[in-house]
Design a protein around this nucleic acid. Structure first.
Lengths: 223, 223
DNA sequence: CCTCCAATGTTGCCAGTGTCAACATAGATA
DNA sequence: TATCTATGTTGACACTGGCAACATTGGAGG
């Protein structure tokens, strides 16, 4: 069922667009957010920008390169969310939980975009250094706070990269299950998060208290 | 780059195949395992079976229905792995860890198939009751042992579905990160698993011992 | 046995996709 | 001003999933 294409070319735009690369990227992200990945088609992007379908090839090697750039933008935005949560939260124990919540909420709020960031559509072939760099950046937004909490004696003093990967797997898993609708009828994602972060804390915390007994009251992550 | 198509139709096969539905399914799974999801094309499947490209439509509504069936088979196989790990492992604490290891290894061994089981290619539209049922079956292979360990007083006595979902998110997250190559240069998946299951155990166990102190020695999951 | 029909498989065709080669245009540079 | 190069366009092509119309068959009823 062919959607009615809006936005035929603006009557009098110059032959050269000026900043087409950026526009293509933004339009792709917009479509992903509004319609979904399957509606991201070179022809559709071109049509919306009033530009021909192959104009894109002057700015990206191919469609995968465009999606890699989309993914890169995603990691950049995600890192911003994480850093904000950490700093606004007070850079402590609770702020770390807030980062986890922010991570999952980002994925749930932008499911298609989040899938592009992972999902084999991209990374398998050409490694795209920019994407890798931005991905590491987002990961480090997790590692650094964690190492800091270890230094403060709040978390177990273990390889912070290993611990961060563990935490990453947990939030990524919750995000993916939520996005793919696998939690329907089981649990609300917010409920799962609160439970998971409690159990996570018990698992990695260095604090006193017997295992199986909750640590001091701590909860406030606006949920 | 068009691959050379092998297996032109066998000279004298009867017009009616006999059990084409099963053959289509197996061939799709075979291609997914050997080449990847993007090589699963109706024409390719037909060619390999020496059957026309649209024969499939007498057995599946469309390509998504075929993939849903593939996913269903995947959940069935996964559940078998889990149940085996639990029973062979002795239905105890260690057997539970073995289930986790088996889960992640299944995904890593069959990455494309595992992606079909999740990944939006399938479940979003027509719910496919068979797929849902088999998915719940695999999930219950996790819930039941967990509830059993709770009854034995080994794990915290909490909503077993909630706890199982938490565990599921963790193994799913590790599996996806590994499959998507996001762990490259960070950690080996087996190392991550061993660490994660130690921390998980500390988090959900009801046992004595101070938090932050490892529980009694327990490790043997052939890794 | 024959007849007929529903199930199964095939062929022709269509719209839609990503991509390339050849061409067009225009901003910058000499 | 002349020309060069970056940028954008047009016309193909091979490939995909899917439908409609047709072909072939095995089996059920007479």
């Amino acid at each position: 069922m062919p959607r009615p294409k809006r936005s035929a070319r603006r009557p009098s735009r110059p032959y050269h667009h000026g900043n087409l690369r950026r526009a293509l990227l933004d339009e792709a992200i917009a479509i992903i957010g509004a319609e979904g990945l399957s509606d991201v088609t070179l022809r559709e992007i071109g049509a919306r920008l009033g530009v021909s379908r192959t104009a894109l090839y002057r700015h990206f090697a191919d469609k995968d390169a465009l999606l890699a750039a989309v993914a890169t933008e995603g990691f950049r935005a995600l890192r911003r969310e994480l850093v904000t949560a950490w700093e606004v939260g007070g850079r402590g124990d609770e702020a770390f939980r807030a980062m986890g919540v922010a991570y999952v909420r980002f994925a749930v709020a932008n499911p298609a975009h989040y899938r592009v960031m992972f999902g084999g559509a991209v990374q398998s072939e050409n490694p795209d250094p920019e994407l890798a760099a931005e991905g590491h950046g987002a990961f480090n937004a997790l590692v650094d706070p964690l190492a800091s909490l270890q230094r403060d004696g709040l978390f177990r003093a273990e390889d912070p990269v290993l611990m961060a990967t563990y935490v990453w797997a947990l939030v990524h898993g919750m995000a993916m299950l939520a996005i793919d609708g696998k939690l329907a009828g089981l649990v609300e994602i917010e409920t799962l998060m609160q439970y998971a972060f409690d159990r996570l804390r018990t698992g990695i915390s260095a604090g006193a208290g017997r295992a199986g007994v909750d640590l001091p009251p701590a909860r406030s992550t606006s949920a």
